[in-house]
Design a binder for these strands. Structure first.
Lengths: 230, 230
DNA sequence: CCAAAAGTGTTTAAATTACACCCATGG
DNA sequence: CCATGGGTGTAATTTAAACACTTTTGG
């Protein structure tokens, strides 16, 4: 008996990606201009159907690359959305993923049925189709929870970074300011990062020390979680 | 054009529920004895296909009731699992949910295609089919994360409870002991619970004060999250 | 009066907060 | 020499941790 013909095998599954980008100042989100139905000619989260022969997690990565050109991005699952009428074409579930990347490290290039791909400041996104507003809110909340309990943020900075860069990242994501001294004290006391010995060059002020992070300690923290209550 | 006939609408979606039960001493998980293929005659998480006309979250509740008789249980989504070969019948995604309930408050009764439904101590579960081991681990981890950042646990105790009951719950979930004095100090300082004025009766030792929780403050905490680092 | 669990305070250590000025570079 | 962001320390407060005995009830 071919179970694929049974009454249950009539659903479709998509992935929707919430790619947050940090440009050194503010938090942005990557949207595409849809060149296909439904909701053609609308800005939306980059998402597409999951092929039947592709694993879910893999598909999120592929869909993102296909629509926006972004590659080698670590994405984390957020939540599954499955209301009956969330998609006009039928019963379409979506699994949302999110990532946080450094805007200037990646080249965004719309392709496939995406006509454009562009960054929007997190507080200035256009009206979104489907349940994409809800999805974005979920992802934003998860990003905030994550950044407070996991040492996220290092992997998305350049290999060598300044303490100010990390602080600005945390401030952008959590939408609050930190005291520089206390922030550095806390960050350094975790021994997750160490000086490279190099400094910034060509800046018209005192050049900042460049740091790198300690992969081993970092992974240990990832497993156990930590508390970034500052 | 009937999009439901398109190549993408050939997937099925199930929900799998990880119901943790607390019996006052240890943490258990609810399994069913499968009376249907695949994996007939095996213990497994209570899960089933989501009907095409039912919302995902609703379905988790219905499936649980249908298989185990459990009603009025608050369930939270854990994660979506979607590897290509996770199900022998075809492309079947599953969305995992979890709940934490008090064992003695509910009557478990297998029905539908479940032949039995029973509680297993969390460290003595039989071999599980599908990717149910992975799902359970995910749920366990999420429960632990949750209990440390949200005041979970009150809603699953009786309306009036003793401080010792809460402490035992935390100890069971987090698998560690707490100092009674410090635990109480911390819990009471949050002002989430208050004395009812009543005490235990018919216990052959000093009767404990019964507490209730303050729904308003509780909800405020739920929104903001909190840190239960003790 | 015995058993069993409830209940309670203090001291020490650690973590967090608040806060203001000098430093190094490019132009 | 000016503008710019980098960089640093200490004191006060808050929070967490360790730790042992008395109380109340039923039997």
């Amino acid at each position: 008996m071919d179970h694929s013909e049974s009454k249950h095998f009539r659903a479709a599954v998509t992935v929707d990606n919430v790619v947050f980008g940090f440009d050194g100042k503010q938090l942005k989100v990557l949207l595409i201009y849809r060149g296909a139905e439904p909701f053609k000619d609308r800005w939306a989260l980059p998402g597409d159907f999951v092929p039947l022969d592709e694993n879910l997690n893999q598909s999120a990565i592929h869909v993102l690359r296909s629509l926006t050109g972004l590659e080698n991005i670590y994405m984390e699952q957020v939540h599954a959305f499955g209301d009956v009428n969330r998609h006009p074409f039928g019963r379409v579930y979506t699994i949302a993923y999110y990532a946080l990347i450094k805007v200037e490290d990646y080249q965004v290039q719309a392709s496939s049925w995406a006509e454009e791909a562009a960054w929007f400041p997190i507080n200035e996104v256009p009206e979104l189709p489907f349940d994409h507003v809800e999805i974005m809110e979920f992802a934003k909340q998860q990003l905030r929870n994550k950044i407070r309990t996991q040492p996220i943020g290092f992997e998305l900075l350049p290999k060598h970074f300044t303490l100010t860069q990390i602080q600005e990242l945390y401030e952008a994501v959590l939408e609050r300011k930190f005291d520089t001294r206390n922030f550095r004290k806390k960050l350094l006391s975790m021994n997750l990062i160490s000086e490279t010995g190099y400094r910034q060059t060509d800046v018209s002020h005192r050049p900042a020390m460049l740091y790198k992070y300690d992969t081993k300690r970092y992974n240990r923290f990832l497993e156990r979680g930590f508390s970034f209550d500052i």
